[in-house]
């Protein structure tokens, strides 16, 4: 039996939408640059050039060096791995977690749904960034913890979206028909409800990746992100912010630009998918 293709709707939606093509190209390019960093630059991400501290852009150091003598160009490239990697992992976690919660709440209905939704209300009542700060502070700064933090705080909107879809689908005839066909609760949820409820969240997930990168950068900026000296855009901007005052613009500007371009790429994908969905 052929498996229901979960991603088929996205593929169909993405077809021919220029914003999606441009956005995907940007993100893939940044990611490819991050992966290919060792071949693009001879500097390592934490390698110190003891002769050049806080030097402006030059032939040896394209984007200049920071206060520790590390090559900014190399660090911006290597940081793409961590930033995009964490963003994708965190959003994947949010999608999986949110989908599971939303599917169960919407399917169960009644008091289970009521209690679950009020739970989500409570989580969402906290300002997102403050909550992220709190969780990150409790868990401690490390890569898996950051994924967990950003993934967790971001799950409730997905849960809500999926639940709303499921509640609307729950009383469609084909779900009744599936019940008549002898499907178990599990099969009703996974085989019949989920594939039909998934499209909207696949559309907003890319937008969310941009947001996840910004959150990560924000956490790093206040010192709760990736521990130094690991290269990460937010942390680099934070470190470079002080240099700006002294006229050494390059330490913060280049990671800032990288962050901007990547988030723009993700947003273009999400925007394009939304446009496409609205047209249908």
């Amino acid at each position: 039996m052929s498996q229901t293709p979960l991603l088929a709707p996205t593929r169909r939606i993405a077809r021919m939408e220029p914003a999606v093509v441009v956005g995907s190209a940007i993100v893939l390019l940044v990611l490819a640059a991050g992966i290919a960093a060792p071949w693009i630059t001879r500097w390592g991400s934490t390698q110190i050039d003891p002769l050049h501290f806080l030097q402006g852009p030059s032939a040896t150091h394209w984007f200049g060096t920071d206060g520790n003598g590390m090559d900014i160009f190399a660090r911006v490239l290597y940081a793409a791995r961590i930033d995009i990697g964490i963003a994708l992992a965190a959003v994947a976690l949010s999608v999986v977690l949110g989908t599971a919660i939303g599917l169960m709440l919407g399917y169960a209905g009644g008091w289970v749904d009521d209690i679950g939704m009020r739970g989500l209300d409570i989580v969402q009542a906290f300002p997102v960034f403050i909550l992220a700060l709190a969780i990150a502070a409790i868990l401690g700064a490390s890569l898996p913890n950051l994924i967990l933090t950003i993934g967790l705080i971001n799950a409730p909107p997905y849960a809500r979206l999926i639940r709303a879809e499921v509640v609307a689908l729950r009383h469609r005839t084909f779900i009744e028909a599936a019940e008549c066909a002898g499907n178990s609760h599990r099969s009703l949820m996974l085989r019949h409800l989920l594939p039909n409820a998934l499209t909207p969240i696949l559309v907003i997930a890319p937008l969310n990746c941009g947001w996840a990168i910004l959150t990560l950068a924000g956490l790093s900026f206040v010192g709760l992100g990736i521990p130094v000296p690991e290269a990460e855009w937010g942390a680099m901007i934070s470190a470079g912010a002080a240099d700006m005052v002294g006229g050494r613009w390059w330490t913060a500007t280049f990671p800032g630009l990288a962050l901007f371009i990547t988030v723009l790429g993700f947003n273009l994908i999400g925007e394009g998918l939304q446009q496409r969905q609205a047209k249908r």
């Binding site: 469609r172 084909f174 028909a177 178990s184």
Partner: peptide
Amino acid sequence: RGLRRYMQMVFQDPFDALNPRMTVED
């Protein structure tokens, strides 16, 4: 569920009664 194999139903709105994401064989 155990009795479903003995009783089946055909619905009024043919399109609403078929899962739009599934093939006829599924």
